[in-house]
Amino acid sequence: MSNTAVVVGAGRGIGQAIGEDLARACPGDRLILADIDAALVERVAASLQAQGVEAIARHVDITDEKSVQELVDETSDADRVAIAAGVFDSSPSLEVTVADFERILRVNTIGCFDVARRYAAGMAARGGGSIVAVASVAARMPRMRQAVYSASKAALRQSLRVLAMEVAGSGVRVNTVSPGPTDTEMMRQLASDHATVDDLADGSLLAFRPRIPAGRVARGSDVAAAVRFLLSPESSHILLGDIVVDGGELLGM
């Protein structure tokens, strides 16, 4: 295993938690933190550097093929890549615009898939690696006012399964992690049906949202731990997988 890991979408939320988790678990590794918000990811990297971690911040726009390829070229030795970039939208299906649909798909599906396939190509040529992308339980369970977001995550999950089949013979593993409600800035946007993010754990009949049996929403660290496992050699026989981190909201379905 090389000593270089890449986290795309590391400026905040789950992506930041993944970067921080990898830094704690593998303090001697070179950690590339990439995000469209250069200033934000620079602050995350600086915080880790202050702890003695070799954390390097890079700007990337995953909707720009050239930007993605530049990042992949610069980190061509990476054999662990986590993809946590994403955008969220909540609009009634009768009101969502085609432009909004295309914008969300461009980031959550096409952009994330492009990152995965470009890294997978290099890993396949070098004989192996692991890629994990953050999907969502919204890919499995319909969510009120989330037709676009749910579609984008379902498409990402399935497209990466196909990619996983195609590169498995070259030693490359591709998996996803599907969080349920997680206490992040993006989730706070979603919590309009509830007084606070924590109240999402109680469910809502009005929003057709089930109660979370664990009694709380996830923390970024909960999701990061699952990502780290899938990136590690300990998960060497897991591919095309999707680990659900939802506190039991989907009831195991």
Results as ranks from 00 to 15, higher is better:
residue 62 I to T: 03
residue 49 Q to I: 13
residue 162 V to H: 01
residue 161 R to F: 07
residue 192 S to T: 08
residue 139 A to T: 00
residue 120 A to T: 07
residue 81 V to F: 02
residue 9 G to R: 11
residue 253 M to A: 09
residue 121 A to V: 14
residue 44 V to C: 05
residue 142 P to F: 12
residue 99 A to Q: 13
residue 60 V to D: 03
residue 140 R to T: 10
residue 245 V to Y: 00
residue 93 S to F: 13
residue 60 V to T: 02
residue 126 R to T: 00
residue 116 A to M: 11
residue 226 A to I: 09
residue 25 A to T: 14
residue 130 S to W: 06
residue 15 G to I: 11
residue 187 M to H: 02
residue 237 H to C: 13
residue 55 A to E: 03
residue 234 E to C: 14
residue 194 H to W: 14
residue 209 R to T: 08
residue 67 S to P: 05
residue 185 E to C: 08
residue 78 A to E: 00
residue 85 A to S: 14
residue 92 P to L: 12
residue 72 V to E: 00
residue 107 V to T: 11
residue 234 E to A: 15
residue 7 V to F: 03
residue 1 M to E: 04
residue 28 G to H: 09
residue 86 G to R: 00
residue 78 A to G: 02
residue 250 L to C: 15
residue 205 L to S: 15
residue 84 A to Q: 01
residue 91 S to W: 15
residue 90 S to I: 11
residue 144 M to R: 15
residue 104 I to P: 02
residue 152 S to W: 04
residue 221 S to L: 12
residue 213 P to G: 05
residue 215 G to A: 11
residue 127 G to C: 07
residue 176 T to Y: 12
residue 61 D to M: 09
residue 64 D to V: 06
residue 180 G to P: 03
residue 125 A to V: 12
residue 65 E to K: 15
residue 202 D to M: 14
residue 198 D to I: 08
residue 203 G to V: 09
residue 252 G to W: 05
residue 157 R to Q: 14
residue 148 V to L: 06
residue 217 V to F: 10
residue 28 G to K: 10
residue 47 S to K: 14
residue 132 V to A: 05
residue 164 A to M: 00
residue 86 G to N: 01
residue 117 R to E: 07
residue 227 V to Q: 09
residue 90 S to G: 11
residue 5 A to R: 11
residue 9 G to H: 10
residue 9 G to I: 01
residue 24 R to G: 06
residue 146 Q to K: 14
residue 81 V to H: 10
residue 72 V to F: 09
residue 252 G to M: 03
residue 120 A to W: 13
residue 71 L to V: 04
residue 162 V to P: 00
